[in-house]
Amino acid sequence: MDKEISDKIKKKASELGLLDCGISTASYLAEERPRLEKWLNQGMHGEMSYMARNVDMRLNPQLIFEGAKSVISVLLNYYPKEKQQNDDAPVLSKYAYGKDYHFVLKDKLNQLLTFIQEEIAPCNGRPFVDSAPVLDKAWAAKAGLGWIGKNTNLISVEHGSFFFIGELIIDLELEPDKKVVPDYCGKCTRCIDACPTQAIVAPQRVDARRCISYQTIELKGELDESLKNQFQDRVFGCDICQDVCPWNLKSEPHQEPDFEPHPRLLELSQKEWMEMDRPLFNELFRKSAVKRTKFEGLKRNLQFISSSD
């Protein structure tokens, strides 16, 4: 397949409101295996047992989608126009302000697949948005969309890192991007220095067990008492390592209506957060990623940070 076809796909991705798009050949990610296995062997995935399953599938797209020939990686901006207004209120990760990104991004990927099938060539494909064993950051880097920073986030030269990553794996051979983005982190250690729980234990290695996002979202049961007083009021997710990254000075507000927050959300006071009941939770987070932790999980998180003083 020639470059003209790949360019058509990227143009359509842009029309769908996607921030960037890159293409790579669906081949085995051999270079990722040692890093992934070391992280798992050290137990840094915590209770995320699904990370230890299907290791071969994570590295080989042929095992997750039969006949896979190309991986189309896309980015979707979620950097908000406005942030929470009360400095003393519990802090919600920016990615959770609006509608759950799984649905928004998967819908765009399905539209992109339909375009390819109707306008390029008949093919089969499957979209992935954090819903299967796919190493999304590795594929995005391979497609030339950025590099993996010291905080393990994909960083784009043009856009920073406040974006979601999704993939469309198809059985159509496309011209892959040859672009390789070098590691521009250099000697900067702002993300490592700023992490209040010291979760970034080495460049490009995060101990999930110490990560505020893992604690407030993934962890079931009680939060780690040894991390008391270290959450900096984060109640769901954490943006600290991204907020301090110089590359995010390039971040511009998204234009995605689905990511607009509920009108009341950004105005909530500390008191309103702490006294939140189930009806208000359901009103504010009806279609939000916050539903993942459920009402009980959010109350657990609120209790943890309120008793940290």
Results as ranks from 00 to 15, higher is better:
Lys108Phe: 09
Leu29Phe: 12
Ser131Arg: 03
Leu280His: 01
Ala52Glu: 14
Phe162Trp: 11
Gly146Ala: 06
Asn248Val: 09
Asp243His: 07
Cys245Met: 03
Ala89Asn: 01
Lys299Ile: 14
Asn151Arg: 00
Glu158Met: 13
Leu154Gly: 02
Arg234Gly: 09
Pro133Ile: 05
Leu227Ile: 11
Gln242Phe: 06
Cys245Ser: 07
Gly43Ile: 06
Leu135Ile: 13
Pro203Lys: 02
Glu283Thr: 05
Tyr97His: 08
Gln111Thr: 08
Asn86Thr: 03
Glu31Thr: 14
Ser269Thr: 12
Asp224Arg: 01
Ile72Met: 03
Glu119Ile: 03
Phe163Glu: 01
Pro90Ala: 02
Ser307Thr: 13
Ala121Pro: 10
Val91Trp: 00
Arg210Val: 08
Met57Trp: 15
Val181Asp: 03
Lys187Asp: 10
Met48Ile: 08
Asn77Asp: 12
Phe259Gln: 01
Tyr184Gln: 10
Cys21Glu: 05
Gln117Asp: 11
Leu135Gly: 08
Lys10Ala: 05
Gly237Met: 00
Arg292Ile: 14
Ser213Lys: 02
Glu222Gln: 12
Lys287Val: 11
Ile155Gln: 01
Arg210Lys: 15
Ala289Gly: 15
His159Leu: 00
Leu219Gln: 14
Asp207Pro: 03
Lys150Ala: 00
Lys228Ala: 13
Leu223Ala: 10
Asn41Gly: 09
Glu31Gly: 02
Glu15Gly: 04
Gln303Ile: 08
Gly98Cys: 05
Val157Cys: 12
Lys94Tyr: 15
Met44Tyr: 12
Glu47Lys: 15
Ile5Asp: 02
Leu109Lys: 06
Ala138Tyr: 13
Glu167Leu: 08
Glu218Ser: 11
Asp100Lys: 00
